[in-house]
Amino acid sequence: MFFHIVLERNMQLHPRHFGRNLREHLVSKLMKDVEGTCSGRHGFVVAITGVDSIGKGLIRDGTGFVTFPVKYQCVVFRPFKGEIVEAVVSMVNKMGFFAEAGPVQIFVSNHLIPDDMEFQSGDMPNYTTSDGSVKIQKDSEVRLKIIGTRVDATEIVRT
């Protein structure tokens, strides 16, 4: 599920960026730092949509670095247990298949693939129903239900 939330972060800025463009530097650094990161709590930070406020900078002793508390809005993607997502299959093997839903990697174990679907190995490994009407192979789109998640490579299941 996607959320638009406000997060806060202490940014450290090198003194050489001090000047007119300080704000821009700060924002670009923030984007570099934050976008694409993943936290267990908020999920995957997709994009920063705006910076709400930049607090007063505090010069760090000894380094000259300045710490700014920055509040920013961002779009996060957080998969939940029980959530139904659509994903694109990226790899199929006999243990199940991998799918991707945006930044999230999903693994669907063959135990959770319906029983009537059989694994067919070969050049293009796939799972096919007995009547051949449905086939899951690389690049197919599947809808699945997440049964569990793990930060670092999110695990999920069910077609």
């Binding site: 972060r9 202490n10 940014m11 450290q12 090198h14 650094k29 730092d33 710490t67």
Partner: peptide, 15 residues
């Protein structure tokens, strides 16, 4: 936070 922040800093900082 800050360490990782620093990690992604765009250019080598030299104190």
């Amino acid at each position: 936070d800050s360490s990782s922040a620093y990690a992604n800093a765009p250019s080598p900082y030299l104190p």
